[in-house]
Simulated scan of single mutants.
Amino acid sequence: MPGIIGKKIGMTRIFSDEGHAVPVTVVEAGPCPVVQVKTEERDGYQAIQLGFGRKKEKRTPRPEAGHAARVGLEAAPAILREFKLPGAELPDEGSEVTVELFAQGDKVKVTGTSKGRGFQGVVKRHGFSGRPASHGHPMSRNPGSLGPGTNPSRVIKGKKLPGQMGDARVTVRNLEIMKVDPERNLLFVKGGLPGSRHSYVFISK
């Protein structure tokens, strides 16, 4: 199986066998029902569609409710995510993917949506050092010169400028699974993960 859908709970720390404090992010992952299986013959590629969470009935469109009921789910999942499985054995529709897919010490990649920071300047957005902050300098955090004036007499494309920061899809690779708790459907992943608390993340090997 390629991965699982989860929700960030928060951060804490656990102690290694050597007594070192290790910062971890706690993720509630699964159980994720297999809502749909896509095959090479019918769809042109192999993949599975996993669901996570539970959507309120009054907020569920009828097509989504029917899509979930087709595999025996009582309620439509709050989120759906497709994982490609080229050349692998496909599971049955209606089966579940749990945290037992992972083991302590596994290396995973985690994808999420980073926190939105709004419109920010170049110092915060790109790490510019800024200009002199003393001796009466009027603009200590502006970007300064944006390029030559005579030729080409314009700002070159790709120049780092102020703008919207965050609220973007971010993937962090080579994170280590420090602990797996199948009874509570929890994964303890070393380090921080993109996104705010209670945001969805996608974990795959």
Rank of each mutant, 00 (worst) to 15 (best):
A133C: 05
V37F: 02
V155F: 07
G87R: 08
P182E: 02
A88K: 15
G192P: 02
K107W: 07
P2H: 10
F52N: 10
P61H: 00
E96D: 07
A21Y: 01
L101A: 10
K124D: 12
A65H: 00
H135I: 01
G30H: 05
R59H: 13
L187Q: 06
E41M: 05
G3Q: 04
F119M: 14
R62Q: 08
H20E: 14
P77C: 02
N142Q: 07
E28Q: 14
K7L: 12
E64A: 14
A78C: 02
S129C: 02
R169H: 12
K190D: 07
H135A: 12
L90T: 01
N151S: 09
V34K: 03
E96I: 08
K58I: 11
V123F: 07
Y45C: 00
P63K: 01
I79Y: 11
V108C: 08
T171C: 10
V71F: 09
K157T: 11
A88H: 13
T111W: 10
L146S: 06
A76E: 08
G19I: 07
G136D: 04
H137Q: 00
D43S: 12
R173F: 14
L186A: 05
R169Q: 14
L146R: 11
H135V: 00
S204L: 01
V97F: 06
I9K: 14
R197C: 02
V34M: 05
K124A: 13
N151Y: 13
S196D: 14
G66M: 08
A29R: 02
V201A: 05
E28I: 03
V123E: 09
L80D: 06
G116L: 07
E18N: 12
I5F: 02
I9Q: 14
F102Q: 10
P2E: 12
G116W: 08
M11L: 11
K38N: 09
D17I: 11
A103C: 11
K55V: 01
H198V: 11
M178V: 15
F15D: 00
K160P: 05
K205C: 02
T60K: 00
R141L: 06
L193C: 08
L161M: 15
V24P: 04
V201W: 07
N151A: 08
P162E: 05
G136S: 08
S95Y: 02
G53H: 01
G94K: 01
V97M: 09
K190Q: 15
S129T: 11
G149T: 12
Y45I: 02
Q164F: 10
G149K: 13
L50E: 01
I156M: 13
K8Q: 11
V170K: 13
G105C: 09
K115V: 15
V97A: 03
K84V: 10
Y45F: 15
V37P: 02
I14T: 13
Q104I: 11
R62Y: 01
Q49D: 03
E183C: 01
G87I: 08
P33G: 02
E57R: 12
T113F: 13
R81E: 11
G19K: 09
V24C: 04
S196P: 01
A88L: 14
A78I: 00
E18T: 13
S145V: 06
T12Q: 06
F119A: 08
M11K: 13
Q104P: 02
K157G: 12
A47P: 05
L193T: 04
C32Q: 05
G149D: 00
Q104A: 15
L146M: 13
P86Q: 08
F188K: 10
R131E: 08
D181T: 03
G66H: 04
E183I: 10
